[in-house]
Design a protein around this nucleic acid. Sequence first.
DNA 1: ACTTGGCACTCGTGGGCAGGGAGTGCCAGA
DNA 2: TCTGGCACTCCCTGCCCACGAGTGCCAAGT
Lengths: 341, 341
Amino acid sequence: MIEDRKLEVLRAIVEDYVSTNEPVGSKALVERHRLGVSPATIRNDMAALEDEGYITQPHTSAGRVPTDKGYRLFVDKLSTVKPLSAPERRAIEGFLGGAVGLDDVVNRTVRLLAQLTRQVAVVQYPSLSRSAVRHLELVGLSDTRVMVVLITDSGRVEQRIVELPGVLREDDLSDLRTRFNARISGHLLSEAPTLLADLPEAVAPDERANVTAVLATVLETLVEHVDERVVMAGTANLARGTALDFPGSIRPVLEALEEHVVLLRLFGEAGDQDVHVSIGGENPHEGLHTASVVSTGYGAEGLTSYASLGIVGPTRMDYPGAIGAVRAVARYVGHILAESS
Amino acid sequence: MIEDRKLEVLRAIVEDYVSTNEPVGSKALVERHRLGVSPATIRNDMAALEDEGYITQPHTSAGRVPTDKGYRLFVDKLSTVKPLSAPERRAIEGFLGGAVGLDDVVNRTVRLLAQLTRQVAVVQYPSLSRSAVRHLELVGLSDTRVMVVLITDSGRVEQRIVELPGVLREDDLSDLRTRFNARISGHLLSEAPTLLADLPEAVAPDERANVTAVLATVLETLVEHVDERVVMAGTANLARGTALDFPGSIRPVLEALEEHVVLLRLFGEAGDQDVHVSIGGENPHEGLHTASVVSTGYGAEGLTSYASLGIVGPTRMDYPGAIGAVRAVARYVGHILAESS
DNA sequence: ACTTGGCACTCGTGGGCAGGGAGTGCCAGA
DNA sequence: TCTGGCACTCCCTGCCCACGAGTGCCAAGT
């Protein structure tokens, strides 16, 4: 009974604070929401909520502001995801539908997400290790130089140039190409090391050195190499709110965003399919203690996700809207990448 | 006589203001610089400088601050480029020398530049149109799909996949590859349209449709396409200074930096070889009216530059240091790219 | 013709103080 | 368990004042 109303009060506080950006008091609360009780009653509830650590007051005679813990409860129990409006959906479809090529898809996605949420958007390129090999091509540039080109099912293309220890004839190259593709085509790149392990032994002894060199490049640079490509957009949104949003300065936030490794670890926490929300102090990185991260994996439907995308903003954030936008965009991107395969 | 001293005073004001970030008064000026005259004399000079529009005072009873015009004069006439220290040079060499591959070079460069200058650094990828073709490879993925891979002398590798209108046999593909390379290998990519114009007429009529399709892709996506790839680092430095640096907010600056097109046009103004400085209101983009840009082209020695790089910061900037750093980094990058060809 | 010291003036800054207002905590009563 | 009342805290604003930094100007000196 009273518990229910307390939660209702917390929700009202979060919603009001997010929309007004000002600490919210008991009187304003009963005016803006039909709570059916008097301000004094609300005050008691608020005192209890404060004791339990869900809200706090900046100064003695100010209204209340949600704490990280308060936002956490709100996100987990009190909010329902805000679905995008029909025009918004159409806008997404139109904007992402016009993309040609992976780079274009990723770039449009990140800008779209930044615009929809009015926060900083971050999109990770489809992870190599979680993609499947569509085709591996070996191109002889000269007698002793071979270019390795890898095409994945997510549309990503990577290439490296290998200096060979010896001369490799064109027909041996062709043979090698066939062997490579027979083993790994259609398989996840992360399985490549196992699938290719015995390759050197399968070829003629005099070719073994060359094969080993090519294989080493493929494995080292394409598989083991941590692919940390991320794109970002909307950093200007950080400077939008008032000083309340990022007490001190937005500098540590910008610094954290520039360390892509930090972002990747952040996203690493995101569960494969559902949206993950990390609030304020929950973030591992010090610089993001004043920020929240809403992220999710994206990829072809039902399958393991290619990679992650999400947004970063102040803890005072429209979580239902952000979660809805992140989820919707992730789905569309997944569809588009799956279709264009 | 008096003119000389006035310029000396302007230089002193710029230097003091840049280092202290506070409006500088006549008394502080004579204390920090051996000008050999009294504060009263300086006051007269300062009044003259203000009349001429080189300095201004934020409020009536504050010290003077350089105007855009003042910085301009300082940069053009009063400053000598600050060469990097020996340790700095060694650091550059060590840091950039360890790079493998174009992406790595570019990424390291932008971070290095941001760290050296403590400003926002921007590096444009080597322009395709200003690079020469090292090799063009055609890879048959299937009967009707061909991957076009272009390698430039700057180490950049671009690829596109072409859907052919008809079937292309392997030996025809090989023939086409030879013809392409014979015509454009070693030439600037911008010359490609002319060099390739008559290619369809040179092949057998039944191959003409396929050749035209491949040619169209090469020209459209690799040559005519504006290659707007830029990387950025050090945006957190914008939030470093006080509110004086960017009156209002850093938001418009961040917004401008996100519009890569704006940056490219900015860099377009940079002369090919020497460092170009654009101060405050001189910048075409509204959002950068409170910022200065120091940029230059980079590339193999003496040749046309591949592309541009530079930094963006508040008008209150250490111009001599910034110019020195930008120039030095551009040279090193040019060397490295030239060597690794 | 320049330079200099002196002096009055402006104006931003910070401290102190009072008043108003928002918001709270608590208590007694329904 | 809810409600109204009341005292309390503390921010914010405006105001005044003194202080200090810095200037502009002038008259005198070189």
